[in-house]
């Protein structure tokens, strides 16, 4: 991305509930878990991450989106791997 386009990026209003594309792979932070699956919030969109246990909470994980319902802004996805740490953990 050129320097100039960086300055133009973000001059827009972004939705509280962004849509997710089934089949796409995204990196998200997992907010909480029930032990076997986790939940990530992308804005007010909720994504259940299958396979995200306690070790993934507050970590950034790569998820393949398997299902998304635009009317309720909720989706499902499968955990692929942990890709990053939170910036406040250390």
């Amino acid at each position: 991305m050129s320097l100039f386009s960086k300055y133009l990026k973000g001059w827009q209003f972004r939705a509280n509930r962004p849509t997710l594309e089934p089949g796409s792979e995204i990196d998200v932070f997992v907010a909480e878990t029930n032990g076997t699956s986790g939940r990530a919030y992308i804005g007010d969109t909720e994504l259940i991450v299958n396979g995200a246990g306690p070790e993934t909470v507050e970590k950034q994980v790569r998820v393949r989106v398997t299902d998304f319902d635009e009317t309720t802004a909720t989706g499902q996805g499968d955990l692929l791997e942990v890709v990053g740490e939170s910036s406040y953990s250390g």
């Binding site: 907010a31 909480e32 878990t33 029930n34 032990g35 076997t36 699956s37 986790g38 939940r39 259940i48 299958n50 396979g51 246990g53 306690p54 070790e55 993934t56 909470v57 507050e58 398997t66 299902d67 499902q76 499968d78 955990l79 692929l80 791997e81 942990v82 406040y88 953990s89």
Partner: peptide, 23 residues
């Protein structure tokens, strides 16, 4: 680390979700 498909799409595990402890 990847461990897919342990929860079916219909489940709602929200009640048991626990955040991380850092403080």
């Amino acid at each position: 680390m990847s461990e897919n498909g342990t929860t079916s799409p219909g489940d709602d595990p929200s009640d048991q979700f626990i955040g991380g402890e850092t403080e």
